[in-house]
Measured scan of single mutants.
Amino acid sequence: HNLTITQGKLFFHYNPKLCLSEIHKMEEVSGTKGRQERNDIALKTNGDQASCENELLKFSYIRTSFDKILLRWEPYWPPDFRDLLGFMLFYKEAPYQNVTEFDGQDACGSNSWTVVDIDPPLRSNDPKSQNHPGWLMRGLKPWTQYAIFVKTLVTFSDERRTYGAKSDIIYVQTDATNPSVPLDPISVSNSSSQIILKWKPPSDPNGNITHYLVFWERQAEDSELFELDYCLKGLKLPSRTWSPPFESEDSQKHNQSEYEDSAGECCSCPKTDSQILKELEESSFRKTFEDYLHNVVFVPRKTSSGTGAEDPRPSRKRRSLGDVGNVTVAVPTVAAFPNTSSTSVPTSPEEHRPFEKVVNKESLVISGLRHFTGYRIELQACNQDTPEERCSVAAYVSARTMPEAKADDIVGPVTHEIFENNVVHLMWQEPKEPNGLIVLYEVSYRRYGDEELHLCVSRKHFALERGCRLRGLSPGNYSVRIRATSLAGNGSWTEPTYFYVTDYLDVPSNIA
């Protein structure tokens, strides 16, 4: 807008934040220059609390790290170098490059900038070799853009010569660093050979998330399962459950009422301010606690030095998902009996873990797994792929695949051998790939016309006998059925096997 004052003059007093240069501009645009008398524009009460600059400061050096910015700028000295009290560095987070010096300023003089007072450097006698002032900004957020400017702080001049310097606002972004852990990993099994893994992005990506790394490792069953005799009275049979499938998407929606109208769909109840505040506090606490764990609990591995020492970490090797089922080394339970199943799973520490690289999504279907087997899954978020990966501390989750139908069934015939004193040795093959492992066998036998009897055969007993022995049988026709019990439950009964026990007292003698 054009402003013209045809008559009258300007009068400025007691404006401590208004620089004289701005008042002189007002004289020019209003056409009143030359009308004012000496005392109409006070030299001592206008701009006496402001830094009124008329020179431009330029930054000469900028260096960044993930949490620091090192700045240096060209030296500046007023005509009387004693008038320079120091520099004021202003900075704040700036997602967009549209910041002005006066953003967030209120009537009390406060604003949204963080201000650092910096002492002037030592003055050199040689004007050509003056030290460049600077400042190291610490405690910054990774991968965050900051708006920065600097200006001088000078003393009051009796001659009211307006001098000083100020830089333009520059924008500097800190470097990326390792992201925080992925949030809320959930693993479920939808079949006997697959596990579905879902997660949420890290709360602090500290860069642009480029991919996720998912490692999985087959877990050995508890050692007590191999040692305890679950045929003993009072000892509860062990059981394991597989990871249940995901709930429906509708039930997972946030901010939804727990109660549904019987007449149909209901609208979600909005969260109160107290609920939102509580969630923010919980989120802040979780982030602080995660940072504490990362800094205190997890110790970084030592990389190899120039002395030739090897990095103890196993090298990563990509495998196809079809090879995942046989990740671990199978060892027989008892070496003397080769027909026992290889369900003991000690994992070799030198073995390469299978892994998958996930790009542009937060889910993965891990296939080719062994049925009813526990897996430990390790999830890392990465925001750099080359020249070397920059990934987060791992988040861990466990899951067990679903049982395989008929995996616990005894394959092959049940054979028998009759000894003296009416002892019958029953023999059968253990299931080759049971659900988890076989903890015991149930032997059901009966003599024709009598009630059915049951015998429990422990895992250890089966390994020693290759089956079991029935003792003290009365003469007669017998039928026997056997079924295995694994961590997933009972298998199917075998087809009945028949044998006849004679009275050993009636056996004919070869003595003449």
Rank of each mutant, 00 (worst) to 15 (best):
Q256W: 07
S315M: 10
E350S: 13
N510S: 09
P431L: 04
T241V: 15
R218K: 05
D506L: 12
G325W: 10
V501I: 04
L321N: 13
R370T: 00
K271V: 03
E247S: 12
A309V: 12
V331N: 09
F289E: 02
E260T: 08
F289I: 03
G449K: 09
R400D: 01
V414F: 04
P496L: 07
S251H: 14
A263L: 12
V365P: 09
R400G: 07
E351A: 10
G491S: 06
P238G: 07
L505Q: 10
A220M: 09
Y441H: 03
F337I: 10
P475F: 06
A220I: 11
E265K: 07
V397Q: 03
G264P: 07
V331T: 11
S474D: 04
S363V: 11
T415G: 10
H371W: 08
L321R: 12
H425S: 11
S458W: 07
R218D: 06
E260S: 11
W242Y: 02
R400V: 05
G374F: 13
V359W: 08
E290A: 07
P475Y: 10
Y478Q: 09
E451L: 15
R481W: 09
Y445S: 05
L440V: 15
K287V: 05
P434N: 04
F462G: 03
P332V: 07
E224N: 15
Y230R: 04
V327A: 11
T502K: 09
H211Q: 07
V424S: 01
P244Y: 15
N360E: 11
P245N: 07
H352Q: 09
A405Q: 03
K460F: 06
P338N: 07
I418M: 02
K361T: 11
C269F: 09
R319G: 14
S268E: 12
N295R: 01
D250N: 14
Y441I: 00
T288H: 01
G306M: 12
T415F: 07
E258P: 14
K302V: 07
R313E: 14
Y498H: 12
R313C: 13
Y230H: 02
H461A: 07
R459Y: 04
C456N: 03
N477E: 09
G325F: 09
Y478N: 00
N422R: 13
Y445P: 03
T401E: 01
L505E: 08
F462T: 05
H425K: 12
F285A: 08
T347L: 14
D311L: 10
C269T: 09
P387R: 07
V334Q: 07
H371T: 15
L213H: 06
P238N: 07
K357F: 14
M402Y: 12
G207D: 02
D450T: 08
A309L: 13
S257V: 04
S243V: 08
V359R: 09
G491H: 05
K271Y: 05
H454N: 02
W242C: 04
D409R: 15
V296Q: 11
E417G: 07
S315E: 11
R481P: 01
P300D: 12
E420F: 15
E442G: 12
T415Q: 12
L505W: 09
H416M: 12
S315H: 10
E265M: 12
R316T: 11
D273C: 09
D204S: 15
G412N: 15
Y292H: 01
R390Q: 13
V296N: 14
K236R: 08
Y448G: 00
Y259W: 09
M402D: 03
N326T: 05
P270L: 04
N326H: 10
S474H: 07
A335S: 08
S367T: 08
F246D: 06
G472M: 12
R483S: 05
H352N: 13
S203P: 02
L321E: 13
T328F: 14
E356K: 13
I377M: 07
P245Q: 13
